[in-house]
């Protein structure tokens, strides 16, 4: 047994003060570098419309950064992989479209409505958090399919039926692009904030050993629910902005399971449970996607 036994100085001599300083300094330094990087990305993002002919590529790049980061809040930080993540994207898109097209709500009201719808859906689906592993994943996927079927079954003047909704009002694509940049930066900022506070440690602890985390008083249920609501709400906002941007919403596209799987793959490629991972993964994969698309069409 390679046990290190050392004579320890009396407690009053607290070497903790000596140890704490470098640890925190390093921590602070890396956090500030990361925040500066974020500001840099934000500045580049803001200047894109001035230098680029179209914002479409950039719009979807930031959408995937936001979605992968949002998914990571749940899958990476709590270990619950929601296959039905697309349900949030879909409910957001539908809420915005219904409010804007059928009830003539202005853009901001449509977005607020979509945010509320996302949060509400997350609370509604919260009982599924009792399940673990594949059970949770499959039930969450089933709920997404159920939700899509319900929307198709609703009368056409309520939710557009199986053919979906076409938004006839004009929405400035540049404004929507800026909104998407803001959402993605917000998602990354939330992930950063969580990972530098003890909440990040607690989430990791829950992932390592749920029982042991609870026994030291960690409110695992509450933390998980908070991440679930955050994750779902961000996805709903993404769906709403994308819906207004593309101005055509249909059940198959809005609830496409590819939204779930792509977000999972992107986040996992960069590194689940890290702040930077989903960003890196989304950037690499969106660019790869674009390149393959360009190559196969030239």
């Amino acid at each position: 047994m390679s046990m290190v036994m050392q004579s320890v100085p009396p407690a009053e001599a607290a070497p903790s003060v000596r140890q704490r300083a470098p640890l925190f300094r390093l921590h602070r330094a890396s956090v500030s570098i990361w925040c500066l990087t974020l500001v840099g990305i934000g500045l580049i993002a803001v200047s894109i419309p001035a230098v680029s002919a179209g914002v479409s590529f950039w719009f979807y790049l930031f959408q995937w950064i936001a979605l992968a980061s949002a998914l990571n809040l749940m899958a990476g930080m709590t270990g619950y992989v929601p296959f039905g993540f697309a349900a949030f994207f879909g409910i957001g898109a539908y809420a915005a479209a219904v409010l804007n097209q059928f009830h003539h709500a202005p853009t901001w009201a449509a977005l607020v409505g979509a945010t509320a719808a996302g949060a509400l859906l997350a609370v509604l689906f919260a009982p599924t958090l009792r399940l673990r592993g594949v059970f949770f994943s499959v039930v969450s996927l089933s709920l997404a399919i159920v939700l899509r079927s319900v929307i198709v079954l609703l009368p056409e003047d309520v939710a557009g039926g199986s053919s979906g909704i076409t938004i006839t009002g004009r929405h400035d694509p540049i404004l929507l692009y800026y909104l998407m940049v803001a959402v993605s930066m917000g998602a990354v900022a939330i992930a950063t904030a969580i990972s530098v506070t003890p909440h990040g440690l607690r989430l990791k602890a829950i992932g390592d050993d749920l029982d042991a985390a609870q026994i030291i008083g960690v409110n695992a249920k509450g933390l998980r629910l908070a991440m679930w609501v955050l994750s779902g709400t961000i996805a709903a906002v993404c769906g709403a902005i994308e819906g207004l941007y593309s101005s055509a919403i249909d059940p198959a596209a809005a609830f496409n399971i590819l939204i779930s799987t792509k977000a999972i793959i992107y986040a996992a490629l960069g590194g689940l449970g890290t702040v930077m991972g989903p960003v890196v993964g989304a950037v690499i994969m969106t660019i790869t996607d674009e390149l393959i698309w360009a190559l196969s069409h030239c």
């Binding site: 990791k204 390592d208 050993d209 042991a212 026994i215 030291i216 960690v218």
Partner: peptide, 24 residues
């Protein structure tokens, strides 16, 4: 408070962090 027969620590946290997770 409680300990377990087979000790249960948070493997992916450092020893110090294992104590810092305790809710303040």
């Amino acid at each position: 408070g409680r300990t377990f027969q087979v000790p249960r620590s948070f493997r992916s946290l450092t020893v110090l962090e294992n104590l810092l997770v305790v809710p303040a």
